[in-house]
Each structure stands twice: as C-alpha cells, then as structure tokens.
Design a protein around this nucleic acid. Structure first.
Lengths: 166, 166
DNA sequence: CCTTCACCTGTGATTAGTCACATGTGATAT
DNA sequence: ATATCACATGTGACTAATCACAGGTGAAGG
C-alpha cells in the first residue's frame, strides 16, 4: 500500500518506465522504502487499472513510460495529507535493544559498523546536497534529504557514544 | 526472519508467554519492529521446534511460558554479530520525499504532525529514562533508548525547520 | 555479420505479515 | 450464583513482499 504511493510519487516528479523506477529505488529510495523489481511492475499495472497513471509513451525493447493522471495526483495528495504510520522497521535499532546481552566486544563491533555505515551515507548525502545547491535549481527532495542527514548524524553520534562506552 | 530474533531477544531477557510478548511489543517495541499477535504465536511454535526456546512453565488459562535455550542464545548472538540490514521502512520519511509536490500548507501540516509525534515520544522516553536511572539497576535497553531519543530529537528538529520554512 | 551487453518486462513459487474473528478460562465484584 | 472482564491462545483467509529465474530486444563494437 505504501509502496504504491512511493511509485506514484516518483511518477509525479517525472514520467518514467518500470525500469527507470527500479533505478530510482536503487539510487537512493531503497534506504527508506525498498522495492523488489517485480513488485514495481505489478504495482504499475494496478495503478494503471485504477486510473492513477497512464501509458504516456512507449519505446524500444518494450519500454512503457507511465505518467501520473490528475486522479493520480489527487490520490497522492490525499495520501500525503492523511496521518502517517509512524511504525518503523529498522534492524539496527532492534539490534541495539538486545546489544547489552552480548559481550562488550560484540556491542562495540555493532556500534562501529553502524557508525561506519552512517558516515558513509552522510558523505554521499552531503555530496549530493552540495551538488544540488550548486545547480541552484529547485529541489523537490530537499526536505527528505535534510531529514535523512539529521537521522544519520544522530546514528553516528550514538555509535561514537557506545564505542566510547559513555 | 527479523521478527523471530526480536522475540528470541525478548525471551533472552526474561522467560515469557506469548501474551506477555504481545504486551512487550505494545509497550514500546512495536515502534521499532511491529508484531501482529498471531505472528508471535506462530514464531513461538517455530522457535520451539528449532530448539531455540523451550516450555519453561505453564499457567492458568492455557498460559505457556517459554525460556530461551543455550542454542537459542547462540543463535541470538550470531544474529547480533552478522551485518545488519540497513534498509528502513518509515512512512514519514517517504512522505518527506514527496512533500514539496503538495501545497505549502500540506507540507507544513505534515511537518507539524511529525514534530508533534516526535515530541510526544520524547516525553515518554525521557520519563522512562529518568525512572530507570533513579532505579539504579543495570538497564539492558539503555543503548536502544538513547538511539531512539536521538532519532526523535532529529525528527523534531527537522519538523521545526520545515515549519519555519528554513 | 554477429557477439556481447545493457535494456526492459515479466512469471511462478514461496514466505512474511495483516486482518478479522473464534474460543475458552480464571479472577473479581455485585 | 452469575455477569463481566482481563487473560491467553489460536485459526483461516488474504495481501504484500521476496526470491529466483525467464526471455526478448536494440545498440554498439570488432
């Protein structure tokens, strides 16, 4: 259900094919909400039969480009406006819950890995951010990137605290 | 798969029944990793047949208390040590991605709601934290609570920035 | 020409997660 | 006594998500 809106949202930014969407998820969205390739195609068919998207173009190798319809846009904003589901699924947080049950070495190893991951993501995000700012074009994803940066900063900080056994 | 370890981890803290586990998820864990009631019972049966847990006690009304076995403990630490899956599923972040496609009013409304939720969670968490510190008992969940607090602080900060249209 | 590779959509089987409901029991209060 | 409620586990039908693989097509280079 949520994935449906992820796809609809991407199509609201730009008309795209299923293949393009796979690329979009690979590039960055899968960190927030992953999508297996075949799910994407299934959902595209469903969205089309609902009238939320339409075939805008076709290309070589069976390529089908979809575009959002006015009805689709209405559905998207309706979804945006309705109260969000605040349940998260994040394995690193779950591991943090049980970390103290393992040895101190394991605990530090986990924190180290999490910290390294956060740092790596931050490097990528900051680079992307700088690039976007340099371009001086309006950036529809700016809010999200800012949120994700703050999130990884928090995780990095936490990892340092645990590593230093604070 | 992950949920299995969530349950195993809880049983590693204390022997519990399925009913108790439902309570544990309701109280706080469902924010990180939700678990439908009937899934819990399914997984308990699976874990028992794997030998990771055993029936430690029975009580009135068909109550079955499970305890972790040494094999279960081994499986739990093995899971903790293996690299985490860093994909998150968090609807508010996904909405943030598409927020700029809606009207400024909608965008602010979303930020306001997210900020309010974060503030509410922080109040609860800080209270729980203070209580735990006052008790002066070792707290196995301290790391996790700290991480979650940092996370919601980040979200609260972000919400303020968006609301102020920074 | 023809090989190779990236492009592009799809199917089928399986598992994990969700929704809604069913069923029984012991404790407590009136 | 008996009504009520919290305790406690479970079933069945369904949907979403995952895994692994299938298979065709155009572009580009040697």
């Amino acid at each position: 259900m949520t994935l449906k809106f992820a796809i609809l949202g991407l199509l609201a930014e730009n008309p795209m094919s299923g293949f393009d969407l796979v690329g979009q998820f690979d590039v960055g969205l899968s960190v927030i909400w992953p999508a297996p390739q075949n799910e994407i195609y299934k959902i595209l068919r469903a969205l089309e039969s609902e009238g939320a998207i339409r075939v805008a173009d076709t290309g070589p190798r069976g390529r089908i480009v979809y575009a959002i319809t006015p009805e689709g846009r209405t559905a998207l904003t309706a979804w945006l406006r309705e109260p969000a589901d605040y349940t998260m699924r994040y394995e690193p947080m779950l591991k943090a819950v049980f970390m103290r049950q393992a040895t101190p070495a394991t605990r530090r190893a986990i924190a180290k890995a999490d910290g390294a991951f956060a740092a790596e993501q931050l490097a990528k995000l900051r680079q992307a951010d700088a690039k976007r700012r340099a371009e001086r074009k309006p950036d529809p994803r700016a809010d999200a990137r800012r949120l994700i940066i703050l999130f990884y900063e928090a995780m990095e900080k936490w990892a340092k605290e645990v590593a230093d056994d604070k």
